[in-house]
Design a protein around this nucleic acid. Structure first.
Lengths: 204, 204, 204, 204
DNA sequence: GCGTAACCGAGACGGTACGTCCCGTCTTGAT
DNA sequence: ATCAAGACGGGACGTACCGTCTCGGTTACGC
């Protein structure tokens, strides 16, 4: 009979406790909800989880990486790749499910906090790009590739620019809080991205 | 003839020292350059400026508000409103002078740090919106209004969306560092904003 | 005709304000009552008296000297030289009026605070010895001199020792708070000072 | 057989470091010698001892309690209970060893500083009475009890008064610095305590 | 009656120490 | 080898007062 085995070799001594792992992530989520990433301390997480600080540091080097893990799975699972048959439909659906996930939610506040934290934590920055930015953008690229296949978009287009055009304004409003995000915003944004802003309708 | 008078009366005691004010802002700029906002300490600023900590706290409630003041004047003065005669030209010029100001510069690092700080300092958030976001966007709106007058853009368009479309991708790349910013990026972005991304050439 | 003249020449310029002087001493007394000498600050006195800090520093170099002046006149006026006709009576009367002045009173707490302050303020120490210890002891010496004249005490005796014997235990209990002071204590102390503690009744 | 166990359980985490404890007390003693209790800073002690401030605060709530511990053991060990066979001899010996310990010494300055500090620190006041006044007085009471057994002193006498009579004048002179302490003072004081000051020699 | 000098209240100044918070590491005995 | 507990050295925080200085303004004297 084969022993089930995690990817890292079993090693000697006492194995790491799954229970502690869970308790830490739960405590992190609770504290993130209560006071946000900026006011989160490892000390508080340890106390709330009933765990020694070393047990946390053994697994996550900084509070950013810990918060990221508590945040990522939840968030990503709520951003399914839409498939409505048109680029306009896909864009609108993706944008709205993003807005729903972050607007006025603790998830949104944590997202904001993580983006802030990424700027001061190099270790976290790597994880962020690899485990968050990259997979999310990969999904968005898929939407565009399907549109290219359908002939909705020229195949010569710079797809990175398109992804930025759609989501950067959303992130911008989330961070700068200068303007709200609602269905009106989503529609206007999708329209502008697809059609551009110059009034060339007539002469074409 | 009545003397015009500022709203606050002269105030009685010893007036605040302009020299200290200057020394504090200079020290802040120097330290911002040396180690960035995240590692900036009020204590260090005070010591470098040859000033008591209270003299700083008397003027700025948090290190964010202090850093903002040290940053804003410089930055804003380097973002002149372009007037090239076309929207495409104005957009490109504005984008490029922004990129030049922030890419690989201490100013850029400070801008990033401030956006991060804004997320954790309510007092700073207000100042940020009032003294930074609002005046910068006012300039950008001007560019578009001139384009509307020239007939380059429909007057029905949502100008807030346009401003976001142009600059949000730039801020996005600055913060997420997932892609670089260069002239190629600027051209592609301006094109996309003006023309949209859908291949409507044929059917129109 | 001689002009009556305070020791310091009148000088030019605006004379010091008696009203401020009074306000400062009153505020000092009030704050001494409220929170004691240890927690008294010049800043608080100035604010309470409606006076600038410099106005205080111009008159008193330290909070000890200020507190002393607020304390001394009051206290000394309540320590009249008794004259009962016997040393025992005088001792008892002097002791009891001292106990009444300090036991459980704000005056007593201030006296204690001043003795503590004298240990850390050289300027105050000089004033204390000159303006407090010396005049008080002079009075006590008088009591003893009268007793010598009456033949109650040998003229060879060291009167400094006697003064200490009577009052040092009282100060000691005030400062160490190890034992209370009451009429029983006063009687026992006076008896012991006059008769000594050795049981010499038999052999004499 | 049951294991005898101290009242407090062993405690779980890392035990407090004896080495730090020692370093702190040594640094305190050195600084007390250099500049006295009034100018002693917890910050300086921490730096001199190579220790964090919290390590000090964890053990002693105030600088008074810290200084007391640095002072007490040393001082008390130098005040042995004399046993010369007579009360006069014991009194004189006890008084002189006290004078030798405090007159012109850093120990004496610290004693003075502590008595001042006791007046402003309630926590310290309790410790002072329990760990200093009480044991010292217990010793002195012993001297008197032995004298009672030898018949030198009436058993009806108030021994608290006697202890005060002997030592209060010494403390008084230490604090008021109005008069010096020397062998002449010690002899005169012991004489006066034993014989009283009234000239009853004749009529007895 | 004008100038000047010392005073006044207010409050900012450079500075020191406070006592607290949290960091990331370490040292226990116990799994 | 890992666990919970909790002490460790360290760095910065924001506050409280210190004693001094700098304003505009007041009050008296001596010319």
């Amino acid at each position: 009979m084969e022993e089930i085995q995690t990817s890292t070799v079993r090693g000697r001594g006492r194995p790491r406790s799954d229970e502690s792992q869970r308790a830490i992530l739960d405590a992190t989520r609770a504290l993130l909800e209560e006071r946000g990433l900026a006011d989160l301390t490892i000390e508080d997480v340890a106390q709330r989880a009933g765990v020694g600080k070393t047990t946390i540091y053994r697994r996550w080097p900084t509070k950013g990486t810990l918060a990221f893990e508590a945040f990522a799975a939840d968030f990503l699972s709520r951003q399914p790749l839409p498939d409505t048959g048109s680029l306009r439909g896909d864009f609108y659906a993706a944008l709205m499910s993003w807005i729903r996930a972050v607007k006025g939610t603790s998830t949104g506040r944590t997202l904001v906090g993580l983006i802030a934290e990424v700027q001061r934590d190099l270790e976290l920055a790597d994880i962020w790009k690899e485990k968050f930015v990259k997979p999310v953008r990969a999904q968005h690229h898929l939407m565009i590739e399907r549109a290219v296949e359908r002939g909705e978009v020229d195949e010569t287009i710079d797809t990175d620019i398109i992804v930025d055009l759609l989501f950067a304004p959303a992130y911008h409003r989330l961070l700068q809080t200068h303007l709200t995000m609602n269905t009106r915003f989503a529609h206007a944004l999708v329209d502008a991205v697809l059609n551009g802003v110059s009034s060339r309708g007539a002469e074409r």
